[in-house]
Amino acid sequence: MKFLHLYYDIMNLYGEYANICAMERILTKSGIECQTDRLSIGDNAKLSEYDFIYVGSGTEKNQKVVLEDFRKYAVTLKAYIDRGGVILMTGNSFEMLGDKITDANGTEFEGIGITDFSVKEQNKKRTTSDAIFKADFTDRKLVGFINKCSEIYGIDTTLFDVLMGLGNKTDDDREGLRINNLFGTHLTGPILIKNPYFLEYIANLVVGGKAKINTKYLGFEKSGYEVTLSELIRRKSAT
């Protein structure tokens, strides 16, 4: 199988390269060979060749630089999503998929228009929170961290329900973006490491029933997940 880590050298805050490592390992442990291409600005990826694509989060300035390059994938990415290709976009990377991003100075940047939503940034305060999310595709809650300076308006097909943390906009109890097998979320960092059950779900989508996914090796991952989840629940009930 072929993976693509797109904008690996610029959309890479918060140790996010590990999401690709987690995917490589779970497939390898399941007896499936996989190989990752790491591409960035100026490269021309043939998206249709890939079985899994990952894009991480970047600074607000870097996101705008990347957006200009990302624009060239508008058509091929739409085709990839339509055929059910699996893509994970964390942090502010999925903000590029909408109609526009307005930065803190009021400058508007056109998105690549995969779907209709708009993003507004500010530069006064970072909104941050530990998070517990619920998804409709798994009984296991997700844990993670959110760190952003934007509000997102107009997403109907959200990914998660917010049990703790931040939604797409202030006082929103829903977060992220889901279209077919596109998963966009403002959870940042190595979320596939921190959430072994989510990793298992994504891995199953990627192999599409062609192999059985091995999860036996995920002992420490599962223990770490339980510790974090119980810490967050304890914190939530204390506040």
């Binding site: 918060y14 140790g15 993670g144 961290f145 960092g189 190595p190 974090t228 967050l232």
Partner: peptide, 11 residues
Amino acid sequence: YFTSDVSWLWD
């Protein structure tokens, strides 16, 4: 402050 985020271990 409270956080249980360990993303930084990967950096």
